[in-house]
Design a binder for these strands. Structure first.
Length: 555
RNA sequence: GGCAGGGUAGCUCAGUGGUAGAGCAGGGGACUCAUAAGCCCUUGGUCGGCGGUUCAAAUCCGCCCCCUGCUACCA
């Protein structure tokens, strides 16, 4: 019985290209998860898109003297290319700039307003008379009322760490024009999050399969109590508020961006010519919805979005929110401004995708922050991908080619116990790796697959077909027949993690056709199958690469 | 400050009550099919500190120290 799985991935903010930390935090785990479920024959929809709106994009646009639209389009194109070249297999990667998204967002806005969960209220905001615009807190600077530091931002004082309200700042000034901001009233809409505190708490309490960090953090937020939040802003870049008298105001990004999961699903369905197909993922209670993202996004996916869904009614709540911690770069948090990151467009232009997919899977920050270093990247490539897995394929196939005329050898009728045991091990690994992936323990899943490759190397050494062939050709034939069949299984086990090299390994092992279509199982390779000319799956990397890559950091 | 996560071998990290683990690095060995790769053996830790619960604690409880993240435009 196929399952229905909706894979929602965080919407990247379209103001800079993606870096490896974001890939490890959300896009890669989501992709592995989706590819696995597709191989299982489950019905999968994986969606995300560029977050096109918000102040940082308008500010960047002003700084570069071009339109916000141009900033968004440039980065959106970059995202699509990264996903394509790195093998992130979205069913649809759209953006919040589509008419469809605006329409779905406005509709949900009105539904929640109708239900009494959105209400208008007047608030006093800082206004820049010279630039003729309202100021977001972080674009006001002034003296901190707590410690007297003169460079405090309106949202927070970097000196003492106090959380501030821009209106409290002494001697405030606008970062747009240096003008002195003036308080000015403006009416905005608010989302009544307070109404959902208890329903959310009861719901989260029952989600015992969530990661402890995600669940405890959310319960902490709910214990303190959610406050109603403003969901409109005085901006001209964004989705218009669909209410008379609010022309010139926009729906704020954090309210509108999470709706993207729904609007993207609807867009996918209509593009496919099956406009109702999204309902299977959102309305059927047996469908499961997973939200992949970094830990900074947890509150939106475990409180605000579920509250919006509860308020609307009739749509599935998140089944799991497997948020990852952060991947740091050589010990420091990734930073755009300091250029402290592995930029994906840069990486895919110069390196193969699978070694980084493997590395990031192996250090995936599932329970705590983890650290990426180029030295470790080279080591894992050389010691694990080249030496353990790539070399296993290569040694088996070159030996077979030379001694058995490039055909899978005919084994004895009854396999030796150790041969049967290694075949059983690879078959059992599908169950074990699959359980890990379904529980989103991807690091453990990859390790379980890799350990079968290690066992297979041991098996080869025990059976030593290179010496057996001299006295007992049948023994060598059995060993190679067995090893080739194990390789066929291993290629499928690795496919969700390494979708570029695994199909190659699978074909080298004598298989034809599509590895993903062959399903989550070992494809048996019968004796007599002819084998193609083998070539190495991975390139051994030179240690000099470490220095070269590290020199690019921080410049 | 509050909340959350983490502090286990030189390095990166698994391990939630029952004789301390993996990979890498270091040392030794047998082999030679393979991108000198693979295999076997081995050195190495008072599991952040102090108390407590228990027949038994890395694992549960309390306090302390250190690292990381979050702290929400409160209307």
């Amino acid at each position: 019985m196929p399952e229905t799985i909706l894979v929602c991935v965080a919407w990247p903010y379209a103001n800079t290209p993606l870096h490896a930390g974001q890939i490890a935090g959300a896009y890669l785990p989501a992709d592995i998860f989706a590819r696995y479920h597709r191989m299982r024959g489950n019905r999968v929809l994986m969606v995300s898109g560029s977050d096109a709106h918000g102040t940082p994009i308008t500010v960047r646009a002003e700084a570069e003297g071009i339109s916000p639209q141009a900033i968004f389009e440039r980065n959106h194109a970059s995202f699509l290319e990264t996903f394509e070249r790195f093998g992130i297999s979205f069913d649809l990667f759209t953006s919040t700039a589509t008419d469809n998204h605006a329409q779905v967002s406005q509709e949900l806005f009105l539904q929640l307003r109708e239900a009494g969960y959105i209400y208008p209220a007047e608030q006093t905001l800082l206004y820049d008379p010279k630039a003729d615009r309202f100021l977001p807190d972080r674009y006001v600077e002034g003296t901190c009322p707590v410690c007297g530091y003169e460079g405090a931002r309106g949202d927070q004082c970097d000196n003492c760490g106090s959380t501030l309200d821009a209106i409290e700042l002494i001697n405030p000034r606008s970062r747009f024009s240096d003008a002195t901001p003036v308080p000015r009233p403006s009416t905005h809409f608010f989302l009544k999050l307070s109404a959902f505190n208890e329903p959310l708490r009861e719901w989260v309490e029952r989600q015992e399969h969530w990661r402890p960090a995600v669940r405890n953090f959310t319960l902490g937020l709910l214990r303190e109590g959610l406050h109603d939040r403003g969901i409109t802003r005085d901006l001209d870049w964004g989705i218009p508020v669909p209410v008379e008298g609010f022309e010139g105001k926009r729906i704020y990004v954090w309210f509108e961006a999470v709706i993207g999961y729904l609007s993207a699903s609807i867009e996918w369905a209509s593009r496919n010519g099956t406009p109702e197909a999204w309902c299977d993922f959102w309305e059927d209670p047996s469908a499961r919805t997973y939200y992949f993202q970094g830990k900074d996004n947890v509150p939106f996916h475990t409180t605000i979005w579920p509250a919006m869904l509860m308020g609307r009614g009739g749509l599935n709540l998140p089944y799991d929110v497997p948020a990852n911690q952060y991947v740091t770069m050589s010990g420091a948090k990734a930073s755009s401004s300091r250029n402290w990151a592995v930029w994906m467009p840069d990486y895919v232009a110069r390196h193969d995708p699978d070694p980084l997919r493997y590395m990031l899977s192996a250090i995936m920050p599932e329970t705590s922050d983890s650290d990426f270093t180029w030295a470790e990247y080279v080591r894992r490539n050389n010691d694990e991908l080249v030496a353990t897995w790539g070399n296993l394929v290569n040694r088996v196939l070159t030996f077979t080619r030379r001694n058995f005329d490039a055909r899978v050898p005919e084994p004895r009728a009854m396999l030796a116990p150790e041969s049967q045991a290694i075949l059983d091990a690879v078959d059992a690994a599908f169950e074990e790796v699959g359980q890990h992936i379904e529980a989103v323990r991807l690091r453990a899943a990859l390790q379980a697959a890799m350990s079968v490759a290690q066992q297979t190397n041991r098996y080869l050494d025990e059976r030593a077909p290179w010496s057996a062939i001299k006295q007992d050709r049948e023994s060598a034939a059995e060993t190679l027949y067995t090893a080739i069949n194990v390789i066929s299984g291993l290629a499928s086990l690795f496919q969700p993690f390494m979708p570029f090299t695994s199909p190659v390994a699978w074909s080298l092992g004598g298989n034809q056709g599509d590895i993903e279509g062959a399903g989550w199982r070992r494809s048996p390779v019968p004796a007599g199958t002819s084998l193609p000319e083998p070539s190495p799956l991975f390139k051994k990397l030179d240690d000099a690469l470490v220095d070269e890559e590290e020199a690019r950091l921080g410049r």
